Computed example of a mutant assay.
Amino acid sequence: MEKQTRLVSWNCANGFAKKQDAFQALAPDLAIICEITQKDSELIENADVQWVGNFGAKGMALMGFNGWSLDRLHESADQHVLTAVASRGEHRLTLVGVWTLPVKSNYIRPIISALDQVSSLLTGDVILAGDFNANPVWKTKPSFEDARTRLLDLGLTSLWHERSGEPHGGESMPTLFWKWNETNPFHIDYIFATEGLRERCCGMTIGTYQEWVGSKISDHVPLIADFDLG
């Protein structure tokens, strides 16, 4: 039986080249890294990397390690939503990375627009994860709940919320500490997955302020999910 497959989703807050050791210590098989430059994404050894963004600026990267390869499927017009097929041996899943920048002052529009564009590609096992810059505590139009409804229609549910039983907007574990301040916590990073993958998820954790933010690695903490793919 193969070892578990680990997904890491993390906004590295730029400067990834200096943070590789902390990231690699998480032992990812698949990763979604936000706020990473193309130059830094090319420094990753022994990885299959797909990057999206504007040249010279921060973007987002999908990464495959330990035999996982990535075939780019679709890059959404609004930044940044990138869809790829991840495969290793007989295992295959669709991986969608998200790091949204606002469209008309709204972080949800790029997600809904991307789902309109790629919904026909989201078949079989699907993971959609990253930094949404959104939570239902902020009342916007379109709203976070509008995006979540679309995700639910596609069979995608947040792993953290399903496993913890916590409601969206009532999370006990933040993923962002605004301005690196422990007193400004928000939950804006997510891992959504289809039912088959949720059933095979054997653990999910969220990093802590002390390890990641207090140590000045990033203002975001990583989300880590392990899957038993057999």
Rank of each mutant, 00 (worst) to 15 (best):
I111Q: 02
S69L: 14
S113K: 05
K216T: 12
N11S: 06
I33E: 02
S105D: 15
A31T: 10
S158F: 02
C12F: 09
S119E: 02
T100F: 04
D78Q: 01
Q24E: 15
A47F: 08
L154W: 04
L73P: 04
W180C: 14
H80Q: 08
T194E: 02
F186S: 07
V118P: 00
E145R: 12
L229R: 09
W160R: 03
M60Y: 14
A61Q: 15
H187I: 14
V137K: 08
S158M: 03
F144M: 01
L154F: 12
A57M: 07
G67L: 12
L30W: 03
M204S: 05
F227H: 00
D189L: 07
R198M: 08
D48T: 12
P174R: 07
G56Y: 06
A27W: 03
W51L: 10
L101A: 13
C201R: 01
S172H: 02
A77D: 13
E75S: 13
P28D: 10
G169L: 06
I44R: 00
Q24V: 13
T149S: 02
K216W: 11
Q24G: 07
A17M: 08
A22E: 14
L156Q: 01
C12D: 03
A25F: 08
S9V: 08
A25W: 10
T100G: 05
